[in-house]
Amino acid sequence: MSMGIPQPALRNSTLVRVILFLWLGVNAALASFAATSVLHKAAPEFVRTDLNHRRLDLRAYRGKIVLLNFWATWCAPCQLEMPRFVAWQNQYGPRGLQIIGVSMDDDSAAANSLVKKLKLNYPVVMGDEKLGHSYGGVMGLPITFLIDSHGKVQAQYQGETNLNSIEEQFKPLLRP
């Protein structure tokens, strides 16, 4: 009596293996996509010209506590955060806080206009997908990174975040 596996069953089994292999491959690829967070890693460096035409090198802010805020003019929650950032820059700037804005607008004119309207007292650069990818992908705004004095990302805040809790997190890192 033959113990061989019937051909259709064999074909089905091979098919199942192929599907399983593909499924695992797709999942691995997706997992690596989701695992590109910069949290607890060195903040990706960048050099840009800010909206006031001054050179901005993130590396030059080593020694300061940096809040790197990605925003856009069409993002309502972003605009609600900004007056608070202005107040923090005034209040905590002398103790080593530096806020840096990254506009994810498609063009700089709208960003420039809002920066003036809100009287932002911190530098703003224009972002792009390259910069966004380097920070793990900016797929929703606002998103803010807390970078310590050694240039390491200590925290990441995505979406409508409780601003009081952000303040409580960066305050202990500032100079007395």
């Binding site: 797709v26 999942n27 997706l30 997992a31 996509f33 989701a34 997908e129 990818h133 992908g137 900016v138 797929m139 929703g140 705004l141 995505q158 979406g159």
Partner: peptide
Amino acid sequence: ADNFGTNWANKGYPVEQGR
């Protein structure tokens, strides 16, 4: 609910990059 990253990409759903 929150944004594309949280409610789509981070769930492991298919994402493509580029313009």
